[in-house]
Design a protein around this nucleic acid. Sequence first.
DNA 1: ACACTATTCAATTGATCTCTTGAATTAAAG
DNA 2: CTTTAATTCAAGAGATCAATTGAATAGTGT
Lengths: 223, 223
Amino acid sequence: MSTQPFKHDLFNQFARIGKAMSNGNRLELLEFLAQGERSVDALARLSGLSVANTSQHLQQLRQAGLVTSRKQGQKVLYRVSGEDVLELFAHLRQVAERHLAEVQRLVDDYLKTRDALEPVPAEELLQRAREGRVTVIDVRPEEEYRSGHLPGAVNIPLPELEQHLQALDPQQPIVAYCRGPHCVLAFDAVKLLRNRGYRAQRLEGGLPEWRLEQLPVIEEDAT
Amino acid sequence: MSTQPFKHDLFNQFARIGKAMSNGNRLELLEFLAQGERSVDALARLSGLSVANTSQHLQQLRQAGLVTSRKQGQKVLYRVSGEDVLELFAHLRQVAERHLAEVQRLVDDYLKTRDALEPVPAEELLQRAREGRVTVIDVRPEEEYRSGHLPGAVNIPLPELEQHLQALDPQQPIVAYCRGPHCVLAFDAVKLLRNRGYRAQRLEGGLPEWRLEQLPVIEEDAT
DNA sequence: ACACTATTCAATTGATCTCTTGAATTAAAG
DNA sequence: CTTTAATTCAAGAGATCAATTGAATAGTGT
C-alpha cells in the first residue's frame, strides 16, 4: 500500500528522534543535560521525577541517540551526544515560541506576574532570610560584594549567573539585589531566572537603601 | 510533586512539537509540504495513506502549529507555517543521520544496492520504455537535449532536478542518462533521486553509445 | 562477607496513539 | 434541488507509553 520501503523506514527512523522529544519530562532532562554531564540521581532531583522513571526516560533519550552515558564508579553519567542535539532543541523551542499561542501566553503571563515586577520590601526579605525560606543573591561584581553585602547573600555577578544556575535550588524562591533602584542588574537577573523557571523577585531598592534602614550588612575586609 | 508549574507547562508545550514529529507518516507529509502547498487528497495519494488518516495527521500537525490550512473551493490546502519549521525538520534529519546507526545503515545500503550502481543496458531500457514501465530522464542541459535524445525521454537538467521532483511518479522506476560513461550527471541524478526515495538507475553509457548501437534517437531541429 | 548506594529491570495500571470504517459536513456541478 | 467530490468527524480495536512498585545488579566502604 505504501510508497517505497526505503523512504518509509527512513522516516520512521527520523520519527524516533521526534518521539524522544515528545515528552515534557524528557525535554526537561535534556535541558539539564545541556548544562553539562549529570548523574541519574542528580537529574532525578533536578526534575523531581523518581529515580526509576528518570532512568527510563534517559534510556529512551539514549536509544534515540540524543544522549550518551558512561559509568564512573557507582554513578552513571549522562551527557548530550553532540552540539547538534542542542541546536535541534533550540529550534524546537523557537518553533514552539513562534507558532504555539499557548507558549506565548505562558511566557508573557509568567514574566508579567505581579510578584515578578513588584519588589520585596527590605524587612520582609530579612524576615524570610532568617527563616531560611529564600535564597538571596547579590548580582553585582565581586569587588562590590566584598566591600559589603546582605547577610546570607551569595555573590553571583550577572554575567556569570547563567553558568551558576545549577547551584541554585529550583524549589526555593530567590531574591536578587544590586546597587539600587536605578540599577538594572537585579531586574535582568530576575528576568533570566524566571525564564528558566525559578521563582525570582527583586529586592526593593539596593544595598545603599538597605544600609539607610539600619539593617545588618556583612563587610569582608581581609582575605 | 514537580518543580515549578510554569516550567512544567512550558516543557509540555514544547513536547507538543516533538509529538507532532514523532510519527513517520507525519514527517513524510511534512516533507511533501516542504515543496509547496498541497491539498489533502494530493497528500493522501503521495503518501499512500487513506484520506481520513491523512486528514487526521494533518490536523495534528496543525494543532502543533507546524502547518496552516486555507480553504479554496472544495479543497483544503495545507502548507508549512514557516521557514523555521523546515529548519527544525532539517536539524532533526541531521541529528538522526549523525546519531542513529540505523539511519546510516539504511542510507548506505540503499545508495549502494547493486542496481543503484549497475547501469541498465540499452536494449533493456528500450524494451521497458516501450512498455511504459519506466520514466526516462535526460539530465543534460536543454541545448544538448534538443539536438538529440532518447525516445520518450524527459529533459530535466541536473541543476533543476530538485525542483521538478514533484512532477515524477514516485511509484515508477526512473532511468537517467547523460553524455556517456565519463559523465557524472546521471550518476549524481541517481544519487539524488535515490536519496529522495525514488527507484533510480543509470543507463549504461550515454547518448553517443546509444547512437552507436543504431537505436532510435529523436532530433528536434526546428522551434 | 556485609551493608550501602546508584542504577536498571520487570510487571502493572491507566492513558494516549494509530488506523479503519462509516457517517456527517460543505462547496461545487448538473 | 439533487448529485458528486473533498474533507472532517466519531467510534472502536490493538498497540504503545508513562508512572509506580518492588526486585535485581553492580560498584564502595567496613
